[in-house]
């Protein structure tokens, strides 16, 4: 029979071994128009170890936010399990909420007519932080996110970047072990986004575990220890940013700036011999096509032939970036 001390050691080792976030075979379906069932998440399994930052990447509708909402305990899964530090988000949501910080992106989630400090005081009471600890904690957080001096201004007068920094302060109010960041840099200017990434990086340094949902590959590359890529509710790749980049080894990207490209053109380009994937980005009046192919095949002539009749503005070739690796993953199977 183990002694008391041994028992406590086993318990401690168990708690260290418990991942910060454990998602097993998670599925969430929604009923669409005409009763059609849509899988927002389809059999997702993922681990975030303690002190680790994991990025959940994918295009809009990939299932990232649904996954984040299940972990925030505001959405129930259809099947599967999700736990935060061993606390099941369905069976024990209260404990999961206590150890989780939720940082939302966008304008939602803050009371626009309250001042920054009143927003934080309200959430301090909602998180049950004792009164004596509230003010020093809020002051520290406002200082950390650079809002000291603006704390008495109403949130409705804040810029998008200031609101996002206030979101971070609110998410960290109760000093959570695990933080879920749902697309935090959406709509923020590049300088603000850089400051935000520095703030997020500090959180991991403080020993927190972070799940970051984003569709910005460079953000995940800069911040995350590991990334998982989702498409149509399914995880299609997982690994370190470097291992994902390696998937594009031996590839070359033909970039064509053009106007008038439609889905039919993209479909035809994907079918060309030697083409591995095609990405299309809209820029107001023009579009950019990124055509991925192997280094051994030059697809330039064939691509330009398919675009005959359209206004081609610029053609160039380059080495693939991490974003290309992501685009390549997302575009696979759509060829």
């Amino acid at each position: 029979m183990p002694s008391d001390l041994e028992g406590r050691e086993v318990q401690m080792l168990d708690s260290i071994a418990t991942p910060a976030i454990a998602i097993d075979d998670l599925t969430r379906t929604f009923k669409g128009p005409q009763g059609r069932v849509k899988h927002a998440i389809n059999g997702l399994s993922l681990r975030v170890e303690r002190g680790e930052m994991v990025g959940l990447l994918g295009p809009n509708g990939a299932g990232k936010t649904s996954t984040a909402k299940i972990l925030m305990t505001v959405l129930l899964p259809t099947s599967g399990k999700a736990g935060i530090l061993g606390h099941d988000v369905v069976r024990d949501p209260q404990t999961a909420r206590r150890v989780t910080g939720v940082i939302l992106g966008g304008d939602a989630g803050l009371y626009a007519r309250l001042t920054a400090v009143d927003n934080l005081l309200l959430f301090a009471d909602l998180y049950g932080i004792p009164y004596r600890e509230q003010k020093p904690r809020i002051r520290d957080l406002l200082d950390m996110v650079g809002l000291l001096g603006n704390e008495r201004k109403r949130v409705e007068s804040f810029s998008r970047g200031m609101k996002q920094r206030l979101h971070i302060a609110r998410g960290l109010l109760h000093d959570p072990d695990v933080v879920i960041l749902d697309e935090p840099s959406n709509g923020i200017d590049p300088v603000g986004a850089r400051e935000l990434r520095a703030l997020i990086r500090e959180q991991v340094r403080d020993g927190r575990s972070v799940l970051l949902t984003t569709h910005y590959m460079f953000e995940a590359d800069e911040l995350c220890d590991r990334v998982a890529v989702m498409r149509d509710g399914t995880k299609i790749a997982e690994g370190t940013p470097d291992s994902l980049k390696k998937q594009t080894d031996g590839q070359v990207v033909l970039t064509v700036t053009v106007s008038g490209v439609g889905e039919d053109h993209v479909g035809r380009l994907r079918a060309l011999p030697g083409v591995r994937s095609v990405g299309l980005t809209e820029h107001g009046g023009s579009q950019t096509l990124d055509v991925h192919s192997g280094q051994e095949t030059d697809v330039t002539a064939a691509v330009l032939a398919e675009l005959r009749g359209l206004s081609v503005i610029q053609v160039s070739k380059r080495e693939p970036t991490l974003e290309d690796a992501y685009v390549s993953l997302i575009s696979q199977d759509r060829r």
């Binding site: 909402k69 925030m72 305990t73 505001v74 209260q94 404990t95 909420r97 206590r98 989780t100 939720v102 939302l104 966008g106 304008d107 939602a108 989630g109 803050l110 009371y111 626009a112 959430f123 009471d125 909602l126 998180y127 049950g128 609110r170």
Partner: peptide, 17 residues
Amino acid sequence: GGTLTALLATPANRAVM
């Protein structure tokens, strides 16, 4: 106001709140 999700993600006792 878009605050319902943030509110219900807190552990606050709903009855008291």
